Amino acid sequence: MASGKLDRQPSFHDLRDLTPFRGVQVYAPVRGFGRRIASRVTGRVRAPKLRTFASKVEKQVHAAIFLGSDPERLVLLARAHPGWSGLCYVAAGLHAYRAHQHAQAAELLSRGLAGASEPPAAAFAATYLGGLRHWIELSEGVEVEVAFSEEAICLALAHSLREIGRPEEALAVMDPLPPSLPAALATCRLYEVLGRPRDVVSRTEGLTNANDVAAALLVIRARALRELGQRPAAQTAVREAMRRRRTSFAVKNAAATERALLMLGVGRRSRSGVAESAPSAAFEELRAATKARRAREAEARELWLREFERLDGGPRL
């Protein structure tokens, strides 16, 4: 999406009375920690009871979605019942996404969005899938709980495409979604991957730290501003990210790291727009101080060893 198009519409103000987003989970970048918690929470969803005179295909799809986690079972149902292919492929893709099989999830979710869903399949989704919740990763360390909806499908598909190295396609998937903070965070992360800091800055104008998703988005904004050489604006974004007392520790830690990089002048650009390759004066001072401290420590250790040998009666062979 071009920057001019972003300037003419709100990018993160969600004006709806009811949204599919339920909760946010922010965790430290320890591999699998947050996702294990999310998997346990997602697994507690109770399967809704089928209506009395449900058809055979309804019973099969219900069992495949709620009583199992194998995508292949739903793929076979999609092939056997073309009118249910859209719903079956989407459900199979979400099963693959929860198992972190992103290549398979991207393929199945794409087929599901392009597949057909006859009225019986749409009625089944409206009746039984409204209570489903899915944890979708928006950026590293930030996940949001989303009710079963088009936004949940598109966010999961965009994340899977990003994981397998197809960020341009992920951006195209995000375009139709209505403005919201989770969608803005996922989109700005894609802009960051693609090296488009100006789009990040344009999309986050006027953002304040209202919750953890906004705080994580402010950290990405600060990184984009630092890359563009706009240090005062980047420092303002970092301060806003750390302002709220109840902001997640992981987000505050990322903001503190960004603040340290700003103090050292890492990633600054010259007036011509070319990144400076030479380290800043503050960095040189820090390196010189570290070198002097290590020299003092080595000298003190040498003196201690000499004193120890003297008290012990000389060195031993």
Rank of each mutant, 00 (worst) to 15 (best):
E72V: 03
P182Y: 01
E137P: 01
A254W: 08
A54T: 03
G195P: 00
I164A: 04
A282P: 01
A233I: 02
R316Q: 15
A170S: 10
E297A: 10
P120G: 15
T19C: 03
P71K: 04
T127Q: 13
I65N: 05
S39M: 02
A214E: 06
R293K: 14
L218H: 04
R293T: 13
M1Y: 08
A116R: 15
A281R: 15
Y97T: 09
G313K: 10
A106V: 04
T247S: 14
D212V: 01
L262S: 07
A78D: 03
Y97R: 10
N209A: 11
K252I: 06
G34L: 02
R133M: 09
A123L: 09
V146Q: 02
C188H: 05
A215V: 05
A254S: 14
D312W: 04
L108D: 10
R293Q: 15
L74E: 10
A78T: 02
G165M: 02
F249I: 10
T247W: 09
C154L: 01
E140N: 05
A91N: 09
R79H: 12
F249Q: 13
T208R: 10
A92C: 12
D312H: 06
I136K: 00
F53I: 01
L185F: 00
G130N: 02
E107M: 04
H100E: 15
A289R: 14
A114R: 08
M242C: 11
Q25T: 11
T19F: 12
P232C: 08
W304P: 00
R133V: 11
E192F: 11
R79Q: 12
G165Y: 03
V193C: 04
N209G: 06
P182I: 01
G86Y: 06
L185S: 00
G23D: 14
V219P: 04
V24T: 15
A114K: 09
L261P: 04
L74D: 12
V266M: 06
H81R: 08
A78I: 02
P279Q: 13
P179Q: 06
H95V: 14
